[in-house]
Computed example of a mutant assay.
Amino acid sequence: MKQLILFTALIITAAAAPAQQKKKAGNPVFPGWYADPEGIIYGNRYWVFPTFSAPYNQQVFFDAFSSPDLVRWTKHARILDTASIKWARRALWAPSVIEKDKKYYLFFGANDIQSDAERGGIGVAVASKPEGPYKDLLGKPLIDKFHNKAQPIDQFVFRDVDGQHYLIYGGWRHCNIARLNADFTGFVPFEDGVTFREITPEKYVEGPFMFRKNGKYYFMWSEGGWTGPDYSVAYAIADSPLGPFKRIGKILQQNPAIARGAGHHSVIHDAKTDSWYIVYHRRPLGETDANSRETCIDRMYFDGNGLIKPVAITTEGVDPAPLQ
């Protein structure tokens, strides 16, 4: 009888295992109001670094989230806050994290400055682990002025195949690119002497992101108003990170049956499986508060010509994808 019970239990366990393996991540991928998520892979874990979505005076820290498989997420609380950034007082947002020489650098916007006369802009902090704790690298902003009319916010760090790091940033419908120096304390001017080069494509508003695929540079950005239903993501492709970038079209937007205002995204690429994921925020149906934004992940695909297919936003999310 005991052998029969044990045999039956083994059958039930074996039958249940595939169902557990097929469980999807679900959207949002973790609880809480979080926006502007940057996703990236470090080692054997996926990481998401988002904005804590709240009124600006409450946006004084960053949390991070990590996962071995895109389904199970661990929260790393307060990896950076204004106690470690003496010049920042509010509106911490849109973190971008890059690893270099076994250190992790977190670029962030602070204070939502409206003019060159105000203190704030884009800063950078450093840590020995992705989850921090991070400390202010400079003791002052890296960029604290409006260059080419671009508000110094929504920073993204892009590492090219030659090892050169670029900072791509900008709000108020203007986007700049600049070459970071070796220790991320400043910039190296381009050959023509310009430090901040404008690369603004048609309909650009904010939230730039870049990746390289098959020798081409894919530049992505957010369009529309961040509080409205028209918030969305479009893209362009060029032969250089400097462009020129001609808008191809929109690939991420709301679905009124699922959620509104899908935008301010990033992209995760698992090179070992050549799987692409888009990480973005959206506003649940029925939510009217501007800060009621949640972080979601869906698959991103390309057609035979290398163009990005429109993304279908979902409630079920992605399949488990354990990193090897």
Results as ranks from 00 to 15, higher is better:
Leu4His: 08
Thr8Met: 13
Ile11Tyr: 00
Ile12Gly: 01
Pro18Asp: 08
Gln20Lys: 11
Lys24Phe: 07
Pro28Ala: 02
Pro31Gln: 10
Gly39Asp: 01
Ile41Thr: 11
Asn44Val: 12
Asn44His: 11
Asn44Pro: 08
Val48Thr: 09
Gln58Leu: 10
Phe62Lys: 03
Trp73Ile: 13
Lys75Pro: 11
Ile79Glu: 08
Leu80Phe: 11
Ile85His: 15
Arg89Cys: 09
Arg90Asn: 11
Asp101His: 09
Arg119His: 13
Ala125Thr: 07
Ala125Trp: 08
Phe146Val: 08
His147Phe: 14
Ala150Arg: 06
Ala150Asn: 03
Pro152Trp: 07
Gln155Ser: 14
Gly163Leu: 12
Gln164Thr: 15
Leu167His: 03
Leu167Glu: 07
Gly170His: 10
His174Asp: 03
Arg179Asp: 14
Arg179Phe: 04
Phe184Ile: 03
Gly186Cys: 08
Glu191Asn: 08
Asp192Pro: 10
Gly193Ser: 04
Phe196Trp: 12
Pro201Phe: 04
Val205Pro: 00
Met210Leu: 15
Tyr217Phe: 15
Tyr231Leu: 05
Ala234Asn: 01
Ala234Phe: 03
Gly249Phe: 01
Ile251Lys: 01
Pro256Thr: 09
Ala259Gln: 02
Arg260Ser: 12
Ala262His: 01
Gly263Phe: 02
Ser266Pro: 04
Val267Tyr: 00
Asp270Trp: 13
Lys272Met: 02
Thr273Gly: 06
Asp274Tyr: 12
Asp274Lys: 15
Trp276Lys: 00
Leu285Asn: 00
Leu285Glu: 00
Thr288Ala: 01
Ala290His: 01
Glu294Ser: 03
Lys309Ser: 10
Val318Ser: 11
Pro320Lys: 10
Pro320Trp: 11
